[in-house]
Amino acid sequence: MNSLKKPIVVFVLGGPGSGKGTQCSKIVQEFGLVHLSAGDLLRTEMASGSQYGDMIATMIKNGEIVPSIVTVNLLKNAIMVDPSKNYLVDGFPRNEENNNSWVENMTSIVDTRFVLYFDCPDEVMTERLLGRGASSGRTDDNIESIKKRFTTFHNQTKPVVEHYGKQSRVHSINSNRPVDQVYDDVRKLFQTLA
């Protein structure tokens, strides 16, 4: 393998409960990409008792976005474990500052290919999140946190999607359908990535 080849990164964005995690697990299974969930990395860091743990916990509970460099460094460390693989980065970048920090710190290290955007109505996502919250144990799957997460998504994440859209680097998929129908569209997209 050519050691100069950078790992390919695909950003996976969509509102909370739009199906990002479900679709990522299918992509991993079929295409062998590594799934990195920014939220999972932050929750792991939060539980580790590190210097950032308490700050991350407070910000996640309030539906706020953790400082970009913290999240970028967690993602960078995870990617550098095996730079020969390709990655799905789920739930990041969540705002313009996240994206700027990523571009500044990661452009020389990875090939950020495109944004896979799952489009789903807020009402559907709310139902999904409340259903998940009943069994997941996630502190942010309650109606107060969900409302805050939607506000953050619409005000801060959607402009990032639009930014990449202006570069023709967004593949938008309607995720208000059965999982397998959504994945049929996803599969076609990743077959062209190879």
Score class of each variant (00 low, 15 high):
residue 180 D to R: 02
residue 70 V to A: 08
residue 138 R to N: 08
residue 130 L to V: 07
residue 46 M to Q: 12
residue 97 E to F: 02
residue 95 N to A: 08
residue 115 V to H: 01
residue 20 K to N: 10
residue 33 L to T: 10
residue 159 P to Q: 03
residue 119 D to E: 14
residue 181 Q to R: 10
residue 57 A to E: 15
residue 55 M to S: 13
residue 79 I to Y: 00
residue 40 D to T: 05
residue 83 P to K: 09
residue 128 R to V: 07
residue 115 V to Q: 05
residue 190 F to G: 13
residue 64 E to A: 02
residue 145 S to V: 06
residue 172 S to V: 06
residue 83 P to D: 08
residue 107 T to Y: 01
residue 131 G to N: 10
residue 115 V to G: 05
residue 34 V to P: 14
residue 102 W to V: 09
residue 161 V to W: 02
residue 146 I to R: 06
residue 22 T to P: 13
residue 155 N to T: 13
residue 3 S to M: 11
residue 8 I to P: 11
residue 130 L to F: 03
residue 89 V to G: 02
residue 79 I to T: 04
residue 191 Q to V: 02
residue 160 V to F: 04
residue 7 P to G: 09
residue 84 S to H: 11
residue 63 G to K: 01
residue 153 F to I: 11
residue 83 P to S: 13
residue 88 L to R: 05
residue 166 K to A: 08
residue 99 N to R: 06
residue 193 L to D: 12
residue 163 H to W: 08
residue 173 I to T: 04
residue 157 T to A: 02
residue 10 V to I: 15
residue 187 R to A: 10
residue 192 T to H: 14
residue 97 E to K: 06
residue 149 R to T: 11
residue 47 A to C: 11
residue 27 I to L: 07
residue 154 H to G: 09
residue 115 V to S: 07
residue 143 I to S: 13
residue 108 S to M: 06
residue 17 G to K: 02
residue 191 Q to D: 03
residue 20 K to W: 08
residue 60 I to F: 04
residue 151 T to C: 09
residue 157 T to S: 07
residue 127 E to S: 09
residue 91 G to N: 07
residue 85 K to C: 14
residue 141 D to L: 02
residue 8 I to D: 15
residue 137 G to V: 03
residue 138 R to L: 07
residue 20 K to G: 01
residue 113 R to F: 04
residue 45 E to N: 09
residue 46 M to D: 03
residue 111 D to F: 01
residue 12 V to M: 15
residue 158 K to T: 14
residue 139 T to Y: 00
residue 98 N to F: 00
residue 189 L to E: 06
residue 8 I to V: 14
residue 114 F to A: 10
residue 145 S to L: 02
residue 185 D to E: 15
residue 1 M to S: 15
residue 178 P to I: 12
residue 79 I to S: 05
residue 47 A to W: 05
residue 164 Y to D: 09
residue 42 L to G: 02
residue 87 Y to E: 09
residue 188 K to F: 10
residue 91 G to W: 00
residue 148 K to F: 03
residue 152 T to W: 10
residue 68 S to H: 03
residue 102 W to Y: 12
residue 171 H to P: 13
residue 187 R to E: 12
residue 175 S to V: 06
residue 193 L to E: 14
residue 43 R to I: 04
residue 58 T to D: 15
residue 162 E to S: 10
residue 158 K to M: 15
residue 172 S to L: 12
residue 51 Q to N: 11
residue 187 R to N: 05
residue 128 R to S: 11
residue 34 V to S: 11
residue 154 H to Q: 13
residue 132 R to I: 08
residue 97 E to A: 08
residue 121 P to T: 03
residue 110 V to N: 04
residue 30 E to S: 07
residue 149 R to P: 14
residue 64 E to P: 07
residue 22 T to K: 00
residue 48 S to M: 02
residue 120 C to H: 00
residue 75 L to F: 00
residue 185 D to I: 09
residue 133 G to I: 04
residue 126 T to L: 13
residue 180 D to H: 01
residue 2 N to V: 05
residue 63 G to Y: 00
residue 144 E to V: 05
residue 62 N to E: 15
